[in-house]
Design a protein around this nucleic acid. Structure first.
Lengths: 340, 340
DNA sequence: GTGAAAGCGCTAACAG
DNA sequence: CTGTTAGCGCTTTCAC
């Protein structure tokens, strides 16, 4: 009984007499032996593991509904295809360091702009990668969503309801860490969408009617709070994430506003919670789970057929979901606002 | 410039002239070279990765608030200590298979009873492991919560409010997969707690006043629905998870019941959502995040000081949080119930 | 059907 | 300070 025999017993039992194979496995069981998976990875030159690269600490992933939904899609696809998943988040503050440790066959990067140093590093190393919610890099597959159209639809909706005084709650830029994997690119695209609708309606957006915060309930609450304290009295709020919209609603309510009677609110993402808050949130739906699943599918295309591989660039649809948080612009409030 | 030099440049730059080290790293960068982490793991005989063994598909982890909270704790501790995290969930339906692939230095097993075959496999292989919400195995550290005391407190609370007709919504046994990582052991312990309080009050629990379902909102809804359809009209519901309690509340409301006026509901876990439903859920708080963090801490004690290691068995406290979903037993309803 | 030997890419004694 | 060498534990041709 040699090493070869043992190896065969585990990997290609058919090349051994059935009897020997069984015997070997029994002995292995008794001894508590298991083939060392690291050594195995080394000789096979593949890890059967996919990496999910995120600029966030792992702990926030689990508390961020957007990320949780995305991971659900990724996990589902990876498991189906027999791959393990490895979440790569900053190690001792450094994503590059974590990336150096990561034993993966390819990487899904979410919320990292294409000029992020780690993205360059991975490209240089020739590791397969797909970019999600980033920019289009010709050599890499990517998945994004039509943020601009979604934002425009949201703005057109409130405009159609007669609102003329709109507050935009944006996600903070990359300077300060955001609570959600959406960065410059996404924020910019959504802003462009809002702006386009306002322009078309001949409404100019005052710069103090754009506030920013982290993409969380708290972030939305404090951003709205800040605007309110500064005397801003919009009849409608366009938030770049549902979490922020929910935070804004909470503060608004604390200020005595009724939603949607006194003020309308629109979110973005359509996380599960959106339908269950009171009032149910009008929002822009994006297929978050599917983004994750598609990203994995694209990544595996690259990982498994290195040769004839052609990058694909997916752009998924968004759509406005009208629920209870939006309504006609209030007459009196409009006047009050006019006086502000 | 030899392999050694390169290795040093990455691992112990101080053993090289500063100049050479820099030069090597530059060349490496240009070439897109990075030390192969798998080979590195092999020679170092450690992976710097911890495994989280779960009987659930990864995709459900992200949609299960209990699990998300637990993972948050695990992730936080692991990141602090410089370890990567690897979630080990059934591969092609087999946990053993996934375990075979897993390149980890140790494992946190959650919701797996001690007699689970994979637990035996890991023990046999001599891999460090800590058990969470399982049974106590003398050779392995473990973390659990005082489920029995928590359940008893919940039951005593409703009893103290005058309730005499109580419905228990339990988590399904291991036969059918549960939506939450709590199995036989946990279910049994909680049941024991409820029972003890009822016994002490001289109330006998009819067997049709225990229903079970998956530990999710839907599971709770359908379990309550089933009981209701069978004519059960309790004045109080004790659910073994907040998600189930919330599901039961939804169905109760659909049946025209007002909570807590017509019926009281108590949950278990105290997930974030519990405080934000309407009415806010009275529940048994357990330190879920901390369970995760403690498990990692214990695991690392074993991983890093193999020798003088002594297993520890932690039992964390639970405590009743009274919120708006419980109130005095309704007089009339009690009579109605009596007639059922 | 089974054993011998080479090598996956790296680290770490050990010389030089 | 730098190069040589021997493994880490496995897989995999290639003979037997």
């Amino acid at each position: 009984m040699s090493k070869t025999a043992v190896s065969f017993a585990f990997n290609s039992p058919e090349r051994l007499s059935a009897e020997t194979a069984v015997r070997i496995r029994e002995v292995a069981d008794t001894l508590g032996y298991r083939p060392n998976p690291v050594a195995r990875m080394l000789t096979q030159r593949q890890t059967m593991t996919l990496g999910v690269l995120t600029p966030q600490a792992l702990a926030v992933i689990f508390s961020n509904p957007f990320f949780a939904l995305f991971s659900e899609g990724v996990a589902h696809a990876a498991e189906d295809l027999g791959y393990e998943l490895h979440f790569i988040s900053p190690l001792h503050g450094s994503l590059a360091l974590a990336m150096g440790r990561a034993t993966v066959d390819g990487v899904v990067a979410i919320g990292l702009s294409a000029d992020h140093p780690e993205v360059g590093q991975i490209r240089g190393a020739g590791l397969p990668m797909v970019l999600v919610d980033s920019d289009d890099l010709p050599e890499h597959s990517s998945v994004m969503v039509d943020d601009e159209a979604g934002a425009r639809a949201a703005a057109e909706h409130v405009l159609g309801l007669g609102h003329r005084d709109v507050l935009i709650i944006a996600v903070e830029g990359p300077e300060s860490p955001t609570g959600q994997p959406q960065r410059q690119g996404v924020t910019e695209r959504r802003l462009r969408g809002y702006q386009a609708a306002l322009d078309a309606a001949g409404i100019s957006l005052r710069s103090d009617h754009i506030v920013a915060g982290r993409a969380s309930i708290e972030g939305g609450a404090s951003a709205f709070q800040r605007a309110w304290a500064a005397g801003t009295r919009p009849t409608a709020v366009l938030a770049m994430s549902d979490a922020m919209a929910i935070g804004a609603m909470r503060v608004a309510r604390e200020q005595g506003l009724r939603i949607p009677d006194d003020m309308s609110v629109v979110g973005f993402d359509d996380i599960d919670l959106a339908a269950h808050v009171d009032p149910p949130l009008t929002t822009v739906h994006q297929p978050i789970r599917q983004k994750g699943a598609d990203a994995v599918r694209l990544l595996l295309a690259e990982v498994e057929q290195r040769e004839a591989y052609r990058p694909e660039h997916l752009r998924l649809e968004t759509r406005l979901i009208v629920r209870g948080s939006t309504g006609p612009a209030p007459r009196e409030r409009q006047e009050v606002t006019g006086a502000t």
